[in-house]
Design a protein around this nucleic acid. Structure first.
Length: 404
DNA sequence: TTCAATGATTATAC
DNA sequence: GTATAATCATTGAA
């Protein structure tokens, strides 16, 4: 016999409830007047349970459950518990909705991860694709890629959410059953069960919040990757750059292609209209910033344009008067003088190279400096209207040589 | 690896 | 809505 058992035996020796007393309320009443003895007896009984067989314990339990005073005692104990425990903890119940969860929910809804499936966030993807400024065709690869990845995130999110909900429900049922079972032997009120369920739900909702947070992070990463992809660029091919440069330098006084011109350039260069706009935007500003740097390029394209025009002219002239064949005209730029033209109301000071070169007279002397062009036509484009704010320095003097 | 060139984006003004 | 100016980010040559 160990010390504890000896102590119990000692306590028991002070007199207490016998097994018969448990089933006898008078015995209980009698013992209430002797608190110390009661404690000893109760402890003795508790310790004795371990020595009992399962059947004996079940029988004792049954006897307790069937005791006629049990319901009254049970309700009194429940009441006391309500007053003590719930009055303390009841304050923290009825939590207001967590703003963090609401934020996450809103974001997941906006990104098309939660809520009804409407193409797996295609709206967000479309918006991002539209922001890229490309044609629908340009964005299609990234768009479908984005949608596929978003759908994947959506699927994982929902599957995890379902798992959590199932686990929560299973655990809640388990705890409720346990509490219901225990409520037969100890005072557990329905309110307490409700409170326990609420605690479980709170725990699971905090896990759900983590899931939502992770999902939001994944969406943000995907989104940033998708948006970053827009920055990826390829240099235009040589032919495309040439076409654009030709247009630019041949319209140097007014390098604002109309919408139709942009479409044509886009078609020729196999790029989008937006890219044409970007290219002209960049070109205008870079040219204006550093004319000197672009002088050589300007000369080159002026010559190219002149040669092309001359060859067309020569062919035409040959066709018209084969008896007096044109010996060929070539040009070179003697110097590039630039003077800033402030584009006011009209473009009366602007000169156009392309139209002028076509009218180079065959009688042009061996060397002749021409100030080419005539007034540029008023632009009619609505997309890139007359530029009255900035100015493109222009004015090209061309030395035309008649090659004999 | 460096750096100029260049296509794309953003902020601002009109 | 467009143009400009500044800036970012990538490319490609040296």
């Amino acid at each position: 016999m160990d010390d504890q058992t000896r102590m119990m035996s000692g306590l028991a020796g002070l007199g207490g409830l016998s097994q018969a007393d448990v089933g006898d309320p008078d015995g209980v009443r009698k013992s209430l007047g002797q608190p110390q003895q009661d404690i000893g007896d109760i402890l003795q009984q508790i310790m004795a349970i371990t020595d009992e067989s399962l059947d004996e314990a079940q029988a004792r339990k049954h006897a307790l459950n069937c005791h006629r005073m049990k319901p009254a005692l049970f309700s009194v104990l429940c009441e006391i518990k309500e007053k003590t425990v719930l009055s303390i903890r009841g304050v923290q119940e009825e939590d207001p909705p967590d703003p963090q969860i609401m934020r996450l929910d809103n974001m997941l809804l906006a990104e098309g991860v939660s809520g009804p499936e409407k193409g797996g966030g295609s709206a967000a993807a479309a918006a991002a694709a539209a922001a890229a400024g490309g044609s629908p065709n340009d964005g299609s690869i990234e768009h479908s890629d984005y949608r596929a990845k978003l759908a994947q995130i959506r699927q994982i999110y929902h599957s995890e959410l379902e798992k959590y909900e199932q686990a929560c429900s299973e655990f809640t049922n388990h705890v409720m059953n346990l509490l219901r079972e225990q409520s037969r032997t100890r005072p557990i009120s329905p309110k307490e069960i409700e409170r326990m369920v609420a605690i479980i739900h709170r725990k699971f909702s905090s896990i759900q919040m983590q899931l939502k947070q992770s999902t939001c992070e994944a969406v943000m990463i995907l989104r940033s990757r998708f948006l970053d992809a827009r920055r990826k660029r390829r240099n235009f091919n040589k032919q495309a750059t040439e076409v654009l440069n030709e247009y630019f330098y041949s319209h140097l006084s007014n390098p604002y292609p109309s919408e139709e011109a942009k479409e044509e350039l886009a078609k020729k260069c196999a790029i989008t209209v937006s890219q044409v706009s970007n290219w002209f935007g960049n070109k205008r500003i870079r040219y204006k910033k550093n004319i000197g740097k672009f002088q050589e390029e300007a000369n080159l394209y002026a010559v190219k344009t002149a040669v092309d025009a001359a060859s067309v002219s020569a062919q035409a002239s040959q066709a018209n008067s084969p008896a007096t064949p044109n010996s060929g005209t070539t040009c070179s730029i003697s110097h590039f003088s630039s003077h800033t033209l402030t584009h006011t109301h009209t473009h009366t000071h602007a000169y156009r190279l392309n139209t002028t070169f076509k009218s180079i007279p065959t009688e042009t002397p061996l060397t002749h400096t021409l100030t080419l062009g005539g007034p540029a036509p008023q632009r009619t484009s609505s997309s890139e209207g007359p530029n009255t704010r900035g100015s493109i320095p222009t004015g090209v003097s061309v030395l035309v040589c008649r090659v004999t």
